[in-house]
Design a protein around this nucleic acid. Structure first.
Length: 634
RNA sequence: GGGGCUGUAGCUCAGCUGGUUAGAGUGCCGGUCUGUCACACCGGAGGUCGCGGGUUCGAGCCCCGUCAGCCCCGCCA
């Protein structure tokens, strides 16, 4: 056990067995040999931390080190000068340890310690001592010990930091703009270090899991050709070929299919992907996917591989997840939850109340109840707890999503109230599952309107009434997605996913006659209402692939020009194959509890896609532009 | 492209109905202090109220514009 890693600032490391034993053994003779005279190595426990300049990391020291002479390097987190005695909290990535400079310390040490300011980098040599019982600090993993400094040197003087690294309890974070501008300081904070250390471990665990399953890590180009995800491409001008451009990959989609054609059988990559679209809290223009593809597989196989990865990742973060994940069809998800990424932590489904409500002749519904429109609603247990203000805000949100609003009924004993309350009896409400103290929230219209409305209302009700989740971790697979969706403007069928997704074999015959009824061999992994990733079984028949391109409105010539390398690949003998891509940054965000992707990416972009730290993008020089055959309009 | 929120000391924030000298905590600087751990105490410095224009006798506060950050829609798996 590397106990040193298991302390406060890195909570996810708790009780994790080390697998680094062999590597440590190799390191040991080396680090022992170069340790300075008079300083003993750290024994058998923390030797990977030792270097020619230090024996341990600050945060690793424990009672077992008492009596040892150690040498540390780190940043001055805080300093407490009591006059005759002075304490320095020394910080590195492993944590914080208290260095004591008492009246008995050498004059030089006392002098240097007296002048230390925050964030200065120092090297300390001293003896680890046990703190007396009443002077221990239980909030610090190293709180049972301290280091009595016998040597102290400033090796990296620091100006007063622009934003604080050491924060007081309850002190707010600096503005995000400043955190991004002074990212080197923000990244020193133990929270950020913890996030990025977990990220590292998740990456390693994903690699190991897939490698153990026989997947080969193969890198694909970053300078490439536009891929078909449908987002805007980042373009890179070619110097050698005037007027021509590379595109940065939105995903390695076509490459991984070609690797299957090439017979690599199982591929994975921790792939950097680029999409030039507007940002969100959970969307960055460059991001990382755990990308995989396998040959001679069906959907079951792929879901199995992805489950193995996800279970391993959650395990790495300390959560035990049961397999297999439950499955829900896309149709059922839309029917019961109004979304293709249902949050199954809560058993609180949407119901079709058309049959029960239609005979009541409620004016609010009558005009809308045509052309296949339905009345759908939520029976809210304890919905009496929703204030009039809550209901009004829910109705307002419903209207913003394009609905005609939200009808509501509350039942308290024999008292029935609400916007359409006078049309209801306790008996009718009982049939809808609305009991005493409950409420019914209803929307009317075509499903494409009521689904998003009731999805939103459901989430808001869960939040406002603080429903208890029935599980902390609710994974599911959403399967049987439609192959096409109507174009919002023309109503014509367009592909719901990328155009390499195989139609469901049972539905292929209806491809031309009834496209909207065709299902795709496409599947999403959903966790607590978040989409973690998606995948599909691919089209391997070049004839079908050409037909599908035709459906996208692509002429055979267009298809050839854009995707010749894929089409010729498929003609060359393509094995049945399929794959998946996990949005890795989002996984890290969920597992760290971070509020935004920016807290799990070392150097993220702002919402306007700027890098405040390094200052990208930036204008290019006239000479650079000329070399690239580019003129910029000003 | 559209909507919303925010912008006051290095940092986090307060600032009344527009009113005369813009405050607090923390950090910083100086001092006292031998067991602190957000040490405590005493003293001090520190302001282009994001920027530009307007209204007004008078603007941190009202109006218009603009910039930046964040959130959302559009867009994007």
């Amino acid at each position: 056990m590397r106990r040193g890693a298991c302390q406060g600032v890195e909570p996810y490391l708790a009780a994790r067995p080390s697998r680094a034993g062999a590597g440590q053994a190799l390191e040991r003779p080396h680090s022992r040999r170069i340790l300075p005279r008079g300083v003993r190595g750290g024994g058998t426990i923390d030797n990977v931390s030792a270097t020619s300049r230090r024996t341990h990391r600050c945060g690793e020291l424990r009672v077992q080190h008492v009596g040892q002479r150690v040498r540390l390097g780190g940043w001055v987190h805080r300093r407490r000068d009591l006059g005759g005695i002075l304490f320095v909290d020394l910080r590195d990535r492993a944590g914080i340890v208290q260095v004591a400079v008492g009246p008995g310390a050498p004059e030089e040490v006392r002098r240097v310690a007296g002048g230390l300011s925050g964030e200065t980098v120092v090297e300390v040599e001293g003896q680890v001592t046990a703190r007396p019982a009443n002077m221990k600090n239980p909030e610090l993993a190293t709180g049972d010990v301290e280091v009595q400094a016998t040597r102290l040197a400033v090796v990296g003087p620091a100006v007063t930091p622009a934003i604080p690294v050491a924060r007081g309890k309850g002190e707010e974070l600096p503005a995000e703009e400043l955190r991004l501008k002074y990212r080197h300081l923000d990244l020193r904070r133990p929270e950020m270090q913890s996030n990025l250390m977990l990220r590292h471990r998740l990456l390693q665990r994903a690699r190991r899991t897939l490698s153990d399953l026989g997947f080969l890590e193969i890198e694909t180009p970053v300078l490439t050709k536009p891929t078909p995800e449908g987002a805007r491409d980042y373009l890179v001008p070619s110097r050698v070929h005037p007027g021509e451009f590379y595109a940065l990959p939105q995903s390695p989609q076509i490459y991984k299919q070609l690797l299957m054609v090439s017979g690599f059988d199982r591929y994975f990559q921790l792939a950097r992907c680029f999409r030039d679209e507007d940002l969100r809290n959970d969307r960055q223009p460059e991001f990382t996917q755990i990308d995989l593809e396998a040959s001679f597989v069906g959907m079951e196989d792929v879901l199995g591989y992805v489950e193995a990865v996800l279970v391993a990742l959650w395990d790495e973060a300390g959560h035990k997840i049961a397999r297999p994940f439950p499955r829900i069809t896309w149709r059922e998800a839309m029917e019961r939850y109004g979304t293709d990424k249902p949050d199954l932590r809560y058993e609180f489904p949407i119901a079709d109340w058309t049959a029960q409500v239609k005979p009541l002749a409620v004016p609010f519904f009558q005009s809308a109840l045509k052309d296949g429109a339905r009345v759908r609603g939520l029976a809210v247990k304890g919905g009496g707890g929703l204030s009039r203000k809550d209901v009004d805000q829910l109705a307002e949100a419903a209207k913003q999503l394009g609905g005609s609003g939200l009808a509501w009924v509350k039942r308290q004993g024999e008292q029935i109230s609400g916007s359409i309350g006078k049309h209801f009896t306790a008996e009718t409400l009982g049939q809808l599952g609305v009991g005493d103290g409950d409420a019914a929230l209803m929307a009317v219209g075509p499903d494409r309107v009521t689904s998003p409305v009731l999805d939103r209302v459901r989430q808001e009700v869960i939040r406002r009434l603080e429903f208890k989740p029935k599980a902390a971790h609710a994974f599911c697979w959403v399967v049987d997605f439609p192959l096409f969706e109507p174009d919002p403007e023309t109503g014509k069928p367009v592909f719901a996913h990328h155009p390499f997704t195989s139609p469901h074999p049972d539905d292929v015959a209806r491809l031309d006659t009834d496209p909207f009824s065709c299902r795709a061999l496409h599947y999403d992994a959903v966790y607590n209402g978040n989409e973690l990733g998606s995948g599909s079984i691919r089209i391997t028949d070049p004839v079908v692939q050409r037909r599908v391109f035709g459906h996208l409105g692509m002429s055979p010539e267009d298809a050839e020009a854009r995707f010749a390398f894929l089409l010729s690949g498929l003609q060359a003998g393509a094995p049945p194959h399929g794959g998946f891509a996990v949005g890795f940054d989002r996984v890290v965000m969920l597992l760290t509890g971070a509020g935004s992707l920016r807290d799990v990416i070392a150097f993220p972009k702002t919402t306007t896609a700027r890098a405040l730290f390094e200052g990208a993008p930036a204008p290019a020089s006239r000479a650079d532009l000329a070399a690239l055959h580019i003129e910029v309009k000003s």
